[in-house]
Write a protein that binds this DNA or RNA. Structure first.
Length: 754
DNA sequence: CTCCTTTGTCTTTTT
DNA sequence: GACAAAGGAG
C-alpha cells in the first residue's frame, strides 16, 4: 500500500485493501469514491494482479477516460492495460467479436434512440392495429420489455391484465424486432440484452471473459439496470471478485430502468459481501452539506447516512426569488460578473437546470453580457439533421442491410424520389422478405418508373459500398460528401442555413481526420462505432467558460460556484412527478445538484416564467422549504440593471435560428454556443472597467455597423444608458441580436459610407 | 413531386 | 414558440 500515492482515510483504505470477494462501498457525494476506485485498481496491480484481468465500468465515457488516465499516471504502461469503459461500449466490443454466434454480422449498426423511433414509427404505420402517433408509448414498452429480458409474447403475458393495448404493443414489438434483425442492427437495449444472450447461449464465450475479468469494478452502481447487474453477476460468477461503488441518494435514472434495488439489496444477493460507508465529504462546505442532508432526509426509501465535512463555513448557501425567468437569468449573469471580478473564473461556475428547455434564457442573457458559456445536455452534434444524413450514407456503405439509413437519404439531396416510389420499394421488400438494398440491386422487381427513379441512388450506394472497403476514413468521408451529392446540393441552394449545414458537415470530416490521427489503424467502421456512444459531457474541456447544464449531465462533476435555477413546483419537482405522487427521485436529483457545489451555492426560483408562448405563475419549490441553513441573498439586487424592464418579458424574435448555427462549427460539442463575445468580455471584466475610449453616443438607431463576427448590421433600437446601454442590431440572414455596448463596442465599427 | 400553409403535440432527465 | 405531420396548390 505504501507505494500507492493516494491519501486515504481509514474507511477508504479498508475498501481499497478488500481485494477479494464481493464488496459494496456506499459512497456519499464528494466522499472520494473515484479516488478509492482508482487507488484500489492501482493496489491490485501492485500486489501482482495482471492489469489484463481488471475491468472497470463507469457511467460515461468521460469518467472511463479519466480513470484510465489516472491509473496510467500512477503506473504507466501497466495501467493502460486495464479495460475501462461504459457498459454499453463494453457490450458493443464483446458483440462485435462474436456477433455471428447470435446471427448478426460484425458490421451491425447501433441504432440510437432517434433511429429506433423512426423504425417504431415505420412498423406502426404498417401494423393495422397500431397508430404511429403512439410511437413513444410503444418505445417505452419495448425498452422496458428488453430491460426485463422479455420476448414480445412473454411481455404480453406480463402486462396484459394492466395494459389495455397490450396486444398491439406485442405486435409492434415483434415487427420492430424483425425489422432490426433484417437491418442487422442493434438498439441501445440490445447491446446489453444480446450480451446476456451471448453469455447464456455460449458458455465458452462467457468462460473466456470470466477468465479474463478476474477483478470487476463498477462505478455508479445505483444507476445500473437489471441487465447490467446480470452482466456483472455472470462475469463475476467464477472469481467472485465484484467491487461496486454507489450511493442510493444519487440514483437519478430510474426512468431509464435503473434499479435502486440493485444497490439496496446487494448485501442480500451477496451475503458474504463486505460493506464500507464513506461519509466524510471532501468537496463542500458544512452549510452546503447541511442543505443537502436536510433535503434528502425527506426521502423514505434509503439507508440513513450523514455526510460531514471539516470545511466549516456557515454562510455559503444563498437563496433568491426572482420576479420572472428573465430577471433570474440576469441576476445570475450579474452575480457571475461580480464573482469573476474576484478570484473566480468562468470555469468555476455552473448553472444547473432541471430541463433543457430552461437553458435558453441563460444563453440569451449571457450573450448580452459577454459571458462565455457552453450548454451541455440537449441536442448533440451527432444528432443534427445534416450530420445524421451524412452519416446515413456511411452506415449504408458499411451495412447495406440497414433499411433505416436508405429511407433517410434515398431522396436527400432531392433526386425526384417521392412517396409513391418509396412506398413501392417498401412493399416489394416486404413482399419478398428482402432488404431495401437487395431490392435496389434487383430493379427488375420494381415497376419501370420506380426502377428508373431509384437507379441514380443505387449507383451511389454501390460506389460507397465499394470504396469503404479500401479507403482510409478521411478519404472516404471526403469521397462520400461529394459522391452523395450533399456538397453540391448544399452549395447550390444559396440558403444561409444550408451554408451552415455544409460547415457542420465539414466539421464532421475534421472530426474524422482527428480520429484517424489519434487511431492510426482505425477504419470507417471504428469511427462510426465511437460516434454511436458518445455523449455531451464527454467533450468537456478546460477552456474558460460557464457551464450551463441539466443536472443529469453534471453527475459526477463539481464546481466552486453552483446556481440551481428554476426551483419551482411544476418545474423542479416536475409536474409529472407531483401528479404521480412520486417526487423522491426529484429530491435525489436536487441532492445531486446541491452536492456539486464546493464553495458557494445559489438557489433560485422565479414567480413567473415564460413558457409555451405565455407567462405562467409558479410557487416556490418544496425543496427550498426543506433546505436548512440557507439565507435570503442580499447580494442580488433589483436595481442592478435598473434601466431594464422585466415586468413585460421582452421576447426579441430572433431571425433565423438565432446563434445556434453560427457557432456550431466548433466540433465536437453539439449545440455548443460559446459566449458570443467571450474573449472580449474577459478583457472588460478583468480590467475592471469598460473600455473608456469608446464613444457610445455613436451607436444610435439606424446606424450601420460592421461586427467582427456577424458582418454588417443595422441598429434598430437602443435602450439603457452608459454601461447598461443595449443595442438591438439586425444582421442580414442572422436576425436581430442584442448587445451590451459596454462589452461589444470594441467589436463594432461604424460604417460611414453606406 | 415539391413547396407552402395549417394544425397538433410538446418539455423531464440520456448510455 | 418550435417542430413535425398532414393537407392543398401548382
Amino acid at each position: 500500500m505504501e507505494s500507492v500515492n493516494f491519501k486515504l482515510n481509514s474507511e477508504q483504505q479498508k475498501a481499497v485493501l478488500a481485494t477479494e470477494g464481493p464488496v459494496l462501498v456506499i459512497a456519499g457525494a464528494g466522499s472520494g469514491k473515484t479516488r478509492v476506485l482508482t487507488a484500489r485498481i492501482c493496489h491490485l496491480i501492485e500486489i501482482g494482479v495482471d492489469p489484463y484481468n481488471i475491468l472497470a465500468i463507469t457511467f460515461t465515457n468521460k469518467a472511463a477516460n479519466e480513470m484510465k488516465e489516472r491509473i496510467e499516471r500512477s503506473l504507466g504502461y501497466a495501467g493502460s492495460q486495464v479495460w475501462t469503459s461504459t457498459f454499453h461500449s463494453m457490450c458493443a466490443k464483446i458483440l462485435r467479436f462474436d456477433a455471428e454466434r447470435l446471427g448478426y454480422s460484425p458490421d451491425f449498426t447501433i441504432y440510437t434512440e432517434l433511429e429506433s423511433e423512426r423504425v417504431v414509427k415505420r412498423v406502426a404505420e404498417n401494423c393495422l392495429d397500431a397508430d404511429a402517433k403512439y410511437k413513444s408509448e410503444y418505445m417505452w414498452h419495448i425498452s422496458r420489455a428488453k430491460t426485463l429480458a422479455l420476448s414480445p409474447d412473454d411481455y404480453y403475458y406480463a402486462i396484459k391484465d394492466d395494459v389495455q393495448n397490450a396486444g398491439t404493443i406485442k405486435q409492434v414489438y415483434k415487427l420492430y424486432e424483425e425489422e432490426l434483425r433484417r437491418s442487422n442492427s442493434l438498439d441501445f437495449d440490445d447491446l446489453l440484452l444480446k450480451t446476456v444472450e451471448l453469455f447464456e447461449n455460449c458458455p465458452d464465450v462467457l468462460e473466456k471473459y470470466q477468465r479474463r475479468f478476474k477483478y470487476i469494478n463498477v462505478d455508479e452502481f445505483q444507476d445500473t439496470n437489471k441487465l447490467q447487474y446480470k452482466i456483472v453477476k455472470l462475469l463475476a460468477k467464477e472469481s467472485g471478485n465484484l467491487f461496486v461503488v454507489g450511493d442510493e441518494d444519487q440514483s437519478i435514472y430510474s426512468w431509464r430502468g435503473a434499479e435502486i434495488k440493485n444497490i439496496l439489496d446487494f448485501p442480500k444477493d451477496f451475503p458474504k459481501a463486505q460493506v464500507f460507508k464513506l461519509e466524510q465529504n471532501y468537496r463542500s462546505t458544512t452549510s452546503i452539506l447541511k442543505a443537502a442532508n436536510s433535503v434528502i432526509k425527506h426521502n423514505a426509501n434509503r439507508n440513513e447516512k450523514n455526510l460531514w465535512s471539516e470545511n466549516k463555513e456557515e454562510n455559503s448557501v444563498e437563496f433568491y426569488e426572482a420576479y420572472n425567468d428573465r430577471e433570474e437569468a440576469s441576476q445570475v449573469a450579474r452575480m457571475i460578473s461580480i464573482l469573476c471580478r474576484g478570484d473566480e473564473s468562468y470555469k468555476d461556475m455552473a448553472v444547473l437546470v432541471r430541463a433543457n428547455s430552461l437553458t435558453r434564457t441563460f444563453e440569451e442573457e449571457f450573450n448580452l453580457h459577454g459571458i462565455p458559456y457552453k450548454v451541455f445536455g440537449g441536442f448533440r452534434f451527432f444528432e443534427r439533421k445534416e450530420i445524421k444524413d451524412a452519416l446515413a450514407y456511411v452506415r449504408l456503405a458499411i451495412n447495406p442491410s440497414d433499411n433505416d439509413c436508405i429511407l433517410r437519404v434515398v431522396n436527400y439531396p432531392k433526386r425526384g424520389v417521392g412517396t409513391s416510389t418509396v412506398e413501392e420499394l417498401k412493399s416489394v421488400a416486404e413482399k419478398n422478405g428482402m432488404t431495401f438494398f437487395s431490392v435496389l440491386v434487383n430493379p427488375q422487381l420494381l415497376s419501370s418508373t420506380a426502377a428508373k427513379k431509384l437507379a441514380p441512388f443505387t449507383e451511389i450506394a454501390m460506389k460507397l459500398i465499394e470504396c469503404v472497403k479500401t479507403m482510409r476514413p478521411t478519404e472516404f468521408f471526403n469521397f462520400m460528401v461529394q459522391a452523395s451529392g450533399l456538397e453540391s446540393a448544399l452549395k447550390a441552394s444559396g440558403d444561409k442555413e444550408d451554408e451552415n449545414r455544409l460547415e457542420n458537415i465539414e466539421e464532421l470530416v475534421n472530426a474524422v481526420k482527428e480520429f484517424e490521427t489519434d487511431n492510426l489503424d482505425a477504419t470507417v467502421s471504428d469511427f462510426m462505432q465511437s460516434v454511436a456512444l458518445v455523449s455531451d459531457t464527454d467533450e468537456m474541456d478546460d477552456d474558460n467558460y460557464v457551464t450551463i447544464a441539466t443536472i443529469h449531465a453534471v453527475k459526477g462533476l463539481e464546481f466552486d460556484n453552483v446556481f440551481i435555477v428554476g426551483c419551482e413546483e411544476g418545474i423542479f419537482p416536475t409536474q409529472r412527478s407531483i401528479a404521480d405522487c412520486d417526487v423522491e427521485e426529484e429530491r435525489r436529483l436536487m441532492y445531486v445538484a446541491i452536492t456539486r457545489a464546493r464553495k458557494k451555492l445559489f438557489v433560485m426560483n422565479a414567480t413567473q416564467r415564460y413558457r409555451f408562448g405565455r407567462t405562467e405563475s409558479f410557487n416556490k419549490s418544496r425543496f427550498i422549504g426543506e433546505m436548512r441553513g440557507i439565507q435570503p441573498s442580499v447580494r442580488f439586487s433589483n436595481s442592478a440593471y435598473g434601466t431594464r424592464d422585466y415586468s413585460a418579458p421582452k421576447r426579441t424574435t430572433f431571425g433565423v435560428n438565432d446563434d445556434k448555427n453560427i457557432y456550431s462549427s466548433s466540433y465536437p460539442t453539439a449545440y455548443q454556443t460559446k459566449g458570443t463575445l467571450g474573449g472580449f468580455a474577459k478583457q472588460s471584466t478583468e480590467s475592471k472597467k469598460p473600455s473608456s475610449g469608446v464613444n457610445y453616443d455613436k451607436f444610435v438607431k439606424d446606424t450601420v455597423v460592421e461586427h467582427s463576427k456577424f458582418g454588417r448590421g443595422l441598429i434598430i433600437s437602443t435602450s439603457g444608458e452608459g454601461e447598461d446601454k443595449i443595442a438591438a442590431i439586425a444582421f442580414k440572414g442572422l436576425g436581430v441580436k442584442r448587445f451590451s455596448l459596454a462589452v461589444a463596442a470594441p467589436l463594432l465599427k461604424i460604417v460611414e459610407d453606406v
